[in-house]
Design a protein around this nucleic acid. Structure first.
Length: 622
RNA sequence: GGGGUGGUAGUUAAGUUGGUUAUAACGCCGGCCUGUCACGCCGGAGGCCGCGGGUUCGAGUCCCGUCCACCCCGCCA
């Protein structure tokens, strides 16, 4: 038998045809007389009927009917039959619902054990079980759809870049370890005992070498590997749309990527982003503004609830009678509030009365548990009444009326508003407040718990600082990487005031997720030397770490820059999936294991001996 | 490394103050049923209560440890 149609293909116009379908038994309903089978393949479902009285095929239908009664879920079968209209019995929920196939010949390719969960659109099964039987999970329609979306994105991406003169070029996966950035997975070299390759965390250096080599416009859909702890939106191996261009500025990069994203949304979702962004451009927000208003560099601007930094007001009032705030005020007014020291800040978040009214006092108190889980010591709060008094607030008794009114004015508090405060170490305050803002938005129904909720808020976050101060090591470190080009008007600050040096780095943010990031690269050896000096990297250090790139940049490197888009996150947001694991065919658990194959695993002593590797602490149970 | 949630039948869950034989739904097996499409009806099987220890006359339930999954912080230039 040769397949003639797939399971989503037949319509009323096919009535009378003799067809052959292949597929999986999705469900069976045995009525003693007729047996109904829903036959499923990757395209859809068609109802089969096995009627012992089917005319015109001799005794065959009776034998086939007996065989059909034995069919069970997920058996793989071939059926030959006649397409018949269903008349009044049609099923409007199925695209093929107006017909059914009356089978007179049936062949079982393979039986199936009873699957551990139903192969249905919506199942109530733990993710653990789904990952263990991933090949069955992938048989379900939602995952089939998601992987098709990924396929479409791949095809659109390749066509887009090809049309725009980009070359798809490969880079090595097994590379030399370079320090800094994400932790690498290491691969031992059998032929060079005691030495290791690193799995590339990104093709960064190689794509820059392509620019030096004159390829001008490069792209690649490429796997990257990072040995860091996992999250909802982080897997140890993931896919990037990696791009690099010569002779471009930041805006050129933005235009290219905006074109790609508009194209993907149009073709995959049928959404015309021009209706939301008529200029064809995504808005841009300075890094500093993002940190001030949202506490991180990937703001979800589908809703408002901005933070207000009230550090200045608190300092001006000497802490306003609040002991913790006085400590901060004393410290900052003493003049050590530089970026090169641990800084304390005070932030407020005003929940407008109409939203605050939705939360009970108990719910508001539960917020404190939430922030404590993130390292906060507590959550100061105040309800503001019509006279501007603070009620239900531990601060109310201590705070001076002057500071209270100054804060009310600063956060524009009105009757019934709830104001939440965080103060202390800047990094903690920012993290806590950023997460609190999202948490509140979900609790208050401003955004759904997961998914886009029909809103697409894109944003370029631009002009971040080139350096960050590392409190523990007491040194400046590169915020992105050491080859990011600083703004020209910042170059004289490289040595005097490194914290104030802004650079040509950018992140593309969608609904609170960083879906891509990149930079214009530093190709001027003189400026590069100054950057290394600020980072405390000696000439010898630089040579041993990045020698091949520094050498390459000496041989006529064009100005260049690029970006990488997280394919998995893009797919996740586009498909409204709850986690990266739903858009990656074979994902890892939070501990980086594969529940299906049981990777990673121990290897034999012989394999280790060949690699000259001795395991110091054998894993438990090994 | 830290904080939180969960783990009971194939699956998802309930399980009271520690007390007789650990429930239910779906699934599975057998039987009946000619129009179902969440088919229906009758009957049946199915348990290492994650694992180890402790308290107790007695532990799914209380205590300690541990493993696994998920969410978050740290980490991820």
């Amino acid at each position: 038998m040769k397949r003639t149609h797939h399971c989503a293909q037949l319509r009323a116009s096919d009535e009378g045809k003799t067809v052959v379908l292949f597929g999986w038994v999705s469900s069976y309903r045995d009525h003693g007389g007729c047996v109904f089978i829903d036959l499923r393949d990757r395209e859809g479902v068609t109802q089969l009927v096995f009627d012992p009285e089917l005319a015109g095929h001799g005794d065959q239908p009776r034998a086939t009917h007996d065989l059909a009664r034995a069919l069970r879920s997920e058996w793989v079968v071939a059926v030959q039959g006649v397409v018949k209209g269903r008349g009044a019995n049609k099923n409007s929920r199925l695209p093929t619902g107006e017909i059914e196939v009356h089978g007179f010949e049936l062949f079982v390719f393979n039986k199936s054990e009873t699957p551990p969960f139903e192969i249905a659109d919506s199942i109530d099964t733990s993710e653990e079980k789904r990952l263990q039987y991933r090949y069955l999970d992938l048989r379900r329609a939602p995952l089939q759809r998601t992987l098709r979306v990924r396929h479409r994105i791949h095809q659109i991406t390749r066509r887009y870049f090809d049309d725009n003169g980009f070359l798809e070029l490969e880079t090595p996966v097994m590379v030399k370890y370079t320090p800094g950035g994400a932790r690498n997975f290491l691969v031992p070299s059998r032929m060079n005992a005691g030495k290791f390759y690193a799995l590339a965390e990104s093709p960064q250096l190689f794509k820059q070498l392509y620019m030096v080599a004159g390829f001008d416009k490069y792209f690649q859909i490429v796997k990257c590997f990072r040995d860091e702890d996992l999250r909802l939106d982080r897997q140890p191996e993931f896919t990037q749309i990696d791009v690099e261009m010569s002779f471009v500025n930041q805006d050129d990069v933005f235009r290219v990527m905006e074109g790609l994203v508009f194209g993907i949304w149009k073709e995959v979702l049928g959404v015309d982003l021009k209706e939301l962004y008529p200029s064809g451009r995504f808005p841009q927000m300075p890094f500093d503004e993002s940190m001030a208003k949202y506490g991180n560099d990937k703001p979800d601007v589908r809703f408002d609830l901005p933070h207000v930094d009230i550090t200045r007001v608190v300092v001006d009032h000497g802490g306003g009678g609040v002991p913790f705030w006085k400590t901060i005020a004393d410290k900052l007014s003493a003049g050590d509030a530089h970026r090169d020291a641990v800084t304390d800040i005070v932030k407020a978040l005003r929940v407008p009365a109409e939203l605050a009214g939705k939360m009970s006092r108990a719910e508001i108190e539960k917020l404190e548990e939430f922030v404590k889980g993130m390292g906060a010591k507590g959550l100061a709060r105040a309800k503001v009444d019509a006279e501007g008094n603070w009620v239900q607030s531990p601060l109310a008794k201590m705070i001076t009326p002057e500071l209270r009114l100054a804060i009310n004015a600063r956060v524009e508090a009105r009757d019934g508003d709830l104001v939440l405060f965080q103060f202390g170490r800047e990094s903690v305050v920012q993290t806590v407040m950023a997460n609190l803002r999202i948490h509140l938005a979900k609790k208050l129904g401003l955004i759904p718990d997961s998914g886009h909720g029909g809103k697409w808020k894109f944003l370029w976050v631009v002009n971040p600082p080139l350096f960050e101060y590392d409190d523990e090591r007491k040194t400046w470190v590169a915020a992105h990487h050491a080859f990011t080009r600083p703004h020209d008007d910042c170059i004289d600050r490289l040595e005097k005031d490194p914290g104030k040096v802004l650079c040509w780095r950018y992140d593309l943010v969608l609904n609170g997720f960083e879906i891509g990031g990149g930079s214009i690269r530093l190709h001027d050896p003189a400026v590069q030397a100054k950057v290394f000096r600020t980072l405390g990297i000696s000439d010898e250090d630089a040579r041993s770490k990045f020698g091949f790139l520094l050498d390459a940049l000496k041989y006529g490197a064009p100005p260049h820059g690029g970006i990488a888009i997280g394919m998995d996150r893009l797919s996740m947001l586009l498909s409204g999936s709850e986690s990266l694991r739903d858009v990656i065919p074979f994902p890892k658990t939070q501990r980086g294991t594969d529940l299906m194959t049981d990777a990673p695993n121990v290897v034999s002593p012989e394999q280790l001996a060949e690699l000259k590797i001795r395991v110091v602490e054998p894993p438990a149970g090994a």
